[in-house]
């Protein structure tokens, strides 16, 4: 009977070699540790990667390009976590000072770089779970919306009256742009106490900066013909989800956005995040506006029905 370590190694190897599943620094650390310390796990790893390399036609002695990308991502993830921990350690000492001025910062910074005709942002705080924006462009000329798509390809718009997504469904993100001054967009999701989910650009797929966004109403990421849908169970958990779309005149670097987020507490509210984005990212972005839509992810549909 396979030992617990071997079972875990098998599961991790399956995940490691599966292009549809994410691979984190923690996964990589765990797998390497098991392989380093247990001969049976090492044997399994050697066999699994040898098969993978032969299947795809790569050199058997070295990681395939696919494995190399997994290894690179895991390294980046580990560095990012280390930097984030260092930043949070530093924040422990300055937070009490910053809290006193926080309200002022929010009020001032949310107005920065926003056109004069821009409407005030709707108030959102950590208790706000309603969806904002159906993806239609409003007076500011840009908008973001989200749609849930079931396994059987039935789409349901997430609106104020129906705010839930289900973990076993897919997420479709729609963007609208009528204004000329925001040709680029950067889209990511935030859940409390979790690492950001990068939708577009996605560093796991080579995306390093904002992507160009076509003019039009409620156009899904990936285009209307082939919309990109994100399996919610892949990189999300149940709970609040806020999807941010940062429209800008110049493309934003993914590393800049990641660094900005890493300096904030993992439970920061959407308000705080929005304020920090204007404060930190606007100088590099040229004309810049932050839009967001919030919802709640519930467990599987089968569980919900019971």
């Amino acid at each position: 009977m396979a030992s617990r370590n071997l079972k875990r190694t098998k599961a991790l190897c399956l995940r490691y070699l599966d292009p549809n599943r994410p691979w984190t620094g923690a996964d990589d650390r765990e797998l390497r540790e098991l392989v380093r310390t247990h001969a049976e796990c090492s044997d399994w790893y050697n066999r699994s990667v040898s098969i993978h390399r032969s299947l795809v036609g790569a050199s058997p002695g070295l990681p395939s390009a696919f494995e190399r990308e997994r290894m690179l991502l895991a390294t980046m993830d580990a560095v990012s976590r280390a930097e984030s921990q260092r930043a949070h350690f530093g924040l422990r000492w300055v937070v009490p000072l910053l809290v006193a001025g926080a309200v002022g910062i929010v009020v001032i910074s949310t107005q920065r770089n926003v056109p004069e005709n821009a409407p005030a942002l709707a108030p959102i705080d950590s208790d706000y779970f309603g969806a904002r924006g159906s993806g239609a462009a409003d007076a500011i000329g840009v908008g973001v919306g989200i749609t849930g798509v079931t396994e059987s390809n039935q789409a349901y718009e997430v609106t104020a009256s129906e705010t839930s997504l289900y973990l076993d469904d897919y997420l479709r993100i729609t963007l609208s742009r009528t204004a000329d001054e925001y040709p680029f967009v950067f889209v990511f999701g935030v859940q409390p106490d979790r690492q950001p989910v990068w939708y577009e650009p996605d560093p796991e797929h080579g995306g390093l900066s904002s992507v160009s966004v076509s003019k039009g109403e409620a156009i899904p990421l990936g285009g209307s013909g082939d919309p990109i849908e994100f399996k919610l169970s892949g990189r999300h958990v149940t709970g609040a989800l806020t999807v941010f779309a940062l429209f800008s005149q110049k493309p934003l670097l993914q590393s800049d956005v990641a660094r900005m987020l890493s300096t904030l507490p993992p439970t920061a509210s959407a308000d705080t995040l929005t304020a920090e984005m204007y404060e930190t990212l606007a100088p590099a972005a040229g004309t810049f506006i932050v839009t967001s839509v919030s919802s709640v992810i519930r467990g599987g549909r089968r569980e919900a029905a019971q």
């Binding site: 690179l72 390294t75 980046m76 560095v79 990012s80 930097e83 560093p203 390093l208 670097l253 993914q254 590393s255 800049d256 990641a258 660094r259």
Partner: peptide, 8 residues
């Protein structure tokens, strides 16, 4: 500085 693009 630890910029992701440079590390990559």
């Amino acid at each position: 500085r630890g910029d992701r693009w440079a590390l990559t």
